[in-house]
Write a protein that binds this DNA or RNA. Structure first.
Lengths: 342, 342
DNA sequence: GTGAAAGCGCTAACAC
DNA sequence: GTGTTAGCGCTTTCAC
């Protein structure tokens, strides 16, 4: 099993009896090269199955063609879909994506960033972990001149491009929908405090209640984690209240599903007596019964857009920051249907 | 926003007034370097926040520290969990993982492999796409001297390390469980023909029926894709038969869930009158009602093991191939419970 | 044990 | 339009 030496531009140059720089220029479509020469080079390259050595290019140009993704998990619908979107555009533009999974732990996130030999990355896309209060490690990277774009869970203080779903308006739609269907005592099981999108969904919830002259009760707003178990716990807490709510707007589908499970064990008729709406449009929301009403997040678009933006930053040194907000859409299912019968 | 020059071994050498080669050796823990010198170098490196440039290392040593993953999708529980396992061990050993998503399309898979500048990868881990009948592109890569390990959907003809769950025994467990619970007319909704693991699960199913003197009917075995929709279609087909089965063993949970959905719309009492068992242990299997009995696949372990194996191959030129088979385990839930009441 | 120097494959002045 | 050459940051003979 011999380790082949790969074809290099030198080989091409030798075969064609021209210089390596001409080959290099021809291959890269630089303008100051004879059309004829270029054609010859291209043909030779194709025929000899030439593949560029990115290590060499990276070394010479001071850039790899790699972009990093730092993400809490990939084992959920939203994140894995975002990554799919990222990968799609990265691949089409000749970039590799390198995956770093933080497990939603700020320490691990920090260690990833510090271990990172930045010289190996042209740019970075990140969703910060739930309670990464300090973001200076990202600032440091930006200061070193490597572009960073945040998506989904963005760091507030850092000035760079960000792409998010429309959390505020999504929350409004969700709560309006609940109100339209006659639910009046609407609780919100939220994400951890401090995260921008948690905050925006909360604001949308609050604003809509206010606008509709509905009571805002502090006990009906619970902050905790994003998991299904958190949703279950929050809901149990809600059901123990003297004044029980009659609907839940959950910060995401996982928590909404946790809520539904608890409601079901408590024999509360979801839809008829108690409304539930989530946020994500995880495929699970169609599997559970009753099917979950939710705000569909544009995960694929978020991934694509983030990647496009990052590549723009990589290409144009002083590309100005953009904050992109992509709308979601309400998907009405059974969990807010007063007439649903199991 | 000045683009910093990164600290190089040259800088360290200059500060310490020694040569670059000594620095290089000290950093890499090579033995022929004075203990004292090494300490000094290490300290200087840490203090100056030196980070190695992998492009340069790669170029000099003819290896990057990147390993590629080629996978059909990542938006499902099994694959995203495998990747999490891979990422975990890769990160701990200083390797980056580069993700390529084939969308389960043989053409795209081929284009990925061909576009791949192999010089940029130290190794490759792959799950082949559903109907990639030709695998020569992988053979070519192996011939070029870069290690490949297959996981989950492996290519039969290619001699290299492979890691899989125990499909055969898992299927036996699943079908035995069905039989123990009194289901006698057991159908199998399988994956596409030609994939090894599809075949193994089928063989487990067949063998168990035979062993228990149960009828094997060709109409009760349906090959199609892996999605929920495929599961629905297969099940409809089954229900249209003159002789209907009274249980389904599905090749995976997605198809099992599709089956359950169709059974539910047909008002067939899952558990009581009709048993269903899946394969994967996707979290969805606990969300659906009745909860799905399934064979839990060791996805995380598969990811970890594959990566360990690949790194061994990368490190030792002639590491001999291993085929690792990791057992799953039966998880009994409601969909095979005769006494389950919705 | 350490240094000097060549070279990995490519790009980018700088000449012509 | 093309060739020459230096150098990107590192490893690795080969001397000493």
């Amino acid at each position: 099993m011999p380790k082949h030496r790969f074809v290099t531009i030198k080989d091409i140059a030798k075969v064609l009896k021209i210089s390596v720089s001409t080959v290099s220029r021809a291959l890269r479509d630089t303008y100051d090269v004879n059309q004829e020469t270029r054609t010859k080079v291209m043909e030779a390259a194709a025929q000899m199955n030439y593949k560029p050595n990115y290590n060499a290019i990276g070394l010479a140009k001071g850039s790899s063609h790699n972009i990093g993704i730092v993400i809490p998990f990939i084992t959920n619908y939203y994140f894995s879909t975002v990554i799919t979107g990222i990968q799609e555009v990265a691949f089409s533009k000749g970039y590799n994506i390198i995956l770093f999974i933080s497990n939603d732990s700020p320490e691990r996130e920090l260690s990833i960033i510090q271990d990172l030999s930045i010289s190996n990355l042209d740019g970075l896309m990140v969703t910060i972990s739930s309670d990464s209060d300090s973001c200076e490690h990202f600032q440091k990277i930006i200061d070193q001149g490597i572009p960073v774009v945040f998506f989904d869970r963005v760091a507030n203080k850092i000035k760079t491009s960000k792409v998010m779903q429309d959390d505020f308006y999504g929350a409004i739609e969700a709560v309006e929908h609940l109100i339209e269907n006659g639910y009046k005592k609407i609780a919100h099981i939220a994400g951890p405090k401090g995260l921008i999108f948690t905050e925006r969904r909360l604001q949308g919830y609050l604003g809509t209640l206010k606008k509709n002259d509905l009571p805002i009760r502090e006990e009906w707003i619970i902050h905790s984690g994003f998991s299904q178990v958190h949703g279950e716990e929050d809901t149990r807490q809600l059901l123990n209240l003297d004044e029980r709510p009659d609907a839940i707007f959950a910060v995401n589908d996982r928590k909404a599903i946790g809520a539904m499970l608890v409601l079901k064990t408590n024999k509360i008729a979801i839809g008829k007596d108690f409304g539930v709406v989530g946020f994500t449009n995880d495929p699970m929301s169609t599997i559970i019964s009753p099917a979950l009403t939710t705000i569909a997040e544009p995960a694929l678009e978020i991934g694509r857009k983030s990647c496009e933006l990052l590549i723009k930053h990589i290409l144009k040194k002083n590309f100005i920051f953009e904050e992109v907000i992509i709308p979601g859409r309400l998907i009405v299912r059974e969990s807010t249907n007063r007439h649903f019968i199991a």
